[in-house]
Structure formats: structure tokens, C-alpha cells
Design a protein around this nucleic acid. Structure first.
Lengths: 229, 229
DNA sequence: ACCTGAACACCGTTCAAGT
DNA sequence: ACCTGAACACCGTTCAAGT
């Protein structure tokens, strides 16, 4: 059938002001969450918007600027617990959980934020809040600074760990291959691993339980001995 | 000068067996460490080897297989402390420091390993060792599993944090821009951050000091109260 | 068997041109 | 001003061909 038109007919020219930074960022976040940062392309973004590839460049300098803007917007969505007069440890827990949730709900945020300096007001507010809580918990300036960084590192590391694990385990048959590998382990050579394998697998599937286990341990170790459930 | 030959004359055909997997992985690691995972390309690798782009494909299926092999080789270089009968906490510290050092000395290793399941024997040995130490420290099976994952997450997060920070701070003027940003902060709006800014900057430049601070805190919190220097 | 260049289907981005 | 396609310099990889 020689005269068949192409399957997707050439898009009509987009009306004059149909595009704007907000619409672009919405589409970018949708694609980022759906396909991951690695698969995020300018061409795909334009297609999602129903627009020529270069149209986006009228609103953003390029891909990096879009990634930055998406990251910034995500940071702004972190909910800080309302200023409480209660124990600072509980509030610190909430703040870290908020950051963790952001990163696990938007896995691409990790890749977007990991490399860039935090320069949004909300990120600043978050850091200030954590530091104030650490001081209120009784830490001196240097301890508070160290503790703040340690908490952020643990939180980011946990989120990264989980999202990467999730991605590799979602592939077809990956789960079975892991189980087979474990079953094949030599119990003589790796006794601890073999006997704890069920617990390891179980710990992984716990959602935020694993994160909270380490977070509570870290807070306990950093803030002092108060047992607190 | 119309007859000038091209600056780099076409490479002679490479002798028959000059290439082998080891030479390829050596070159790959060199490039990865020098330019980062993002800048690592098959074409660049072939050029580094003085060989046509496609020559590498005779020894590896593709880029992913090379990345996997490099990651595996790096993992194998982690030195486990010799089996000690002493306190498990000190040994756990050493193991985590070893992993941390690997990741900070080879920043690309993080990107290579973060997404892939650990399937080398040395990685297995490392996990087994950590679990055994945690059990020896008195943790039950589930606690040991949780603690092991938390320690890995913290270690990976710290290394990621540092290498990314280092990369962005190495760019020209980035350091000054950060300082200017801090100086411009409103002390009324962000009192804790402003007063602790010097401590934060200082904590960052400490090398492994910051990492050890959090690691000791985490070990203290996970293993129990024994104070230990 | 090992190494080669040309070619394909991608990518981000520059550019000159349309409206 | 905003949107467009063609073109450029990249990328990983397939392929048929050289040695």
C-alpha cells in the first residue's frame, strides 16, 4: 500500500503560548518518575508535550537547567513537622523520614540531587531545622554539624540502596536468580551469611522498617543513651 | 597548508593478540578514575588502547559487561582485617572503613556498583564477615541482618555524599559561590545554620573524620552502650 | 580468531528560518 | 516571542569485510 500515510501524522504546529515552564516541569517529572533519570531525554520530553524538540529550549537553557528545576521543585515538597516543643529526637526522626520518603517516592530525585549543591530556600530551611534540633538535643556546634551530615548521609544512602535494589529486582527472573544464588552458597565457607539469609531477605522487604531501624540506631548513638522507643 | 597530513595519522593496524581482557579492564579503570563514569565511552576506551572501536567487542559483549567486570575487580581489592579474636566492634569499623576507602579512592565504583547485585565471591565473603561480627557482638539474627544493611547504607551514602560534593566543589569558583551564599544568609530566618556554618564547612574537609564520627555513632547505637574509644 | 571502517539509531544542542 | 526542521558532533552497537 504505497499511498498509506505515516502511522503518526506530523503534529500540527503547536498554538502560540501553549508551552510554559510549569507545563514542561510537570511533564519532566512524570517522565522521570516513570522511566528513570537515565531514560529522560529532551526528545522524549518534547514528544510528551506534543511539541517539536526545540520548543523546550525557548523556556529553559537546556537539559541541566530542567533537571535542576525539577530537583528544586521536589525539595520544596518535603513536609517539615510543625515546630514542636517536644523531644527533638522525635522531630529529627520525622524530618529524616520526610527526606527518605521523597527519595523513595521519586527515585530520580536522588540522581538529580546527588550531584548538585542545594540552593533552594526549602533545602536551607530543612538544614537549619535539623541543626536547631540537634543543638536543642544537647550537642555542641561541632557535634551538631557532624551529626547533621551523618544523618543526611545515612538517609541518602538508604534511599539509594533501596531504589537501586528495587530496580534490579524488578527485572524478570532477577528475584529467582538471587534465591538460586543463595541456595547454592557453601554453608561451610559462609556460615553466617547462609544462616542469616532469610533474615536479610526479610529485612529488605520491610518498606521503611529497615530504614527506621538504622535511623533509630544512629540517633541513639549520636544523641546519647536515652533509650526511647 | 593544503597538503598537511592530519594531526593524528591513522593508527597502524594493531598486532594480532595485543588486546586481552586484562589490558582492557586496566584501561577502563584508568579512564573511569580519571574522568568519571559519565565520561566513560567505548570510543574513548578504544582510543586509550590504541585500537579500533570495535576491537574491544571481541573480548566483551559490550559496555555493561566491561562496567560489571571493573566493578567486580574493584570489590576484590577490599582488604578485610585479619580474623581477630578481639572485640567485633573494632573489626566492623575496619571493614566499613575499607569499603569507604574503596569508594572514595575510586569514585566511579559507586556508580558502577550501586545498581548491580553483588555477585562476586569477595563481596559474599565481605557480607559473611560482617554478619558474623554482628552476631559475635551479641545481636540476634534479625538485628544482625538489619544492622548489616544499615551499616552498608551509611557507608555507601557517606561515600556518595563526599565524592559528589568533591566533584561539584572542584569546579572553578564553586567554593567562593558557596561561601558567598552562606554569607548572604539571613541570620534571623536561619539562626542555627548561620551560627553553625563554620562547623559545617570544617566537618566537610575532614577526610575520614566525618565518616568515622557517624560510623562510631551508628555502631554505638546498633551494638549497645559499651563506650569504647 | 581477532581487528577493521562504514552504517544505524540514538543523544543534546546550534542555527537559520518560519509564524 | 515562540516554535520549527535540518544539521552537527557525539554515543553504543550491528554488520560485512579484511587479515
Amino acid at each position: 500500500m504505497p499511498s498509506t500515510p505515516p502511522a503518526s501524522p506530523p503534529r500540527r504546529r503547536a498554538p502560540r503560548n501553549s508551552l510554559n515552564p510549569d507545563r514542561i516541569l510537570d511533564a519532566a517529572l512524570t517522565l522521570l518518575d516513570r522511566d528513570g533519570a537515565e531514560a529522560f531525554t529532551m526528545r522524549g520530553l518534547a514528544q510528551q508535550l506534543g511539541v517539536g524538540t526545540m520548543a523546550v529550549y525557548s523556556h529553559f537553557r537546556g537539559k541541566d537547567e530542567i533537571s535542576d528545576a525539577v530537583a528544586q521543585r521536589l525539595l520544596d515538597t518535603i513536609e517539615l513537622p510543625r515546630e514542636g516543643s517536644g523531644d527533638p529526637r522525635g522531630e529529627l526522626r520525622e524530618v529524616c523520614l520526610g527526606v527518605y520518603r521523597l527519595f523513595t517516592e521519586h527515585p530520580s530525585a536522588l540522581e538529580l540531587l546527588a550531584g548538585r549543591p542545594l540552593r533552594g530556600d526549602d533545602a536551607i530551611a530543612l538544614i537549619d531545622r535539623m541543626l536547631a534540633l540537634l543543638v536543642r538535643a544537647g550537642l555542641g556546634p561541632q557535634d551538631a554539624a557532624h551529626a547533621h551530615i551523618a544523618l543526611m548521609q545515612y538517609t541518602v544512602g538508604s534511599a539509594l540502596w533501596n531504589t537501586r535494589r528495587a530496580r534490579t529486582l524488578c527485572q524478570d527472573g532477577a528475584r529467582d536468580r538471587v534465591l538460586a544464588k543463595i541456595a547454592a552458597l557453601d554453608a561451610g565457607a559462609y556460615p553466617a551469611l547462609v544462616s542469616l539469609a532469610p533474615d536479610l531477605l526479610c529485612a529488605r522487604n520491610e518498606g521503611t522498617g529497615q530504614f527506621e531501624y538504622g535511623l533509630d540506631g544512629l540517633l541513639r548513638g549520636l544523641l546519647g543513651a536515652a533509650p526511647q522507643v
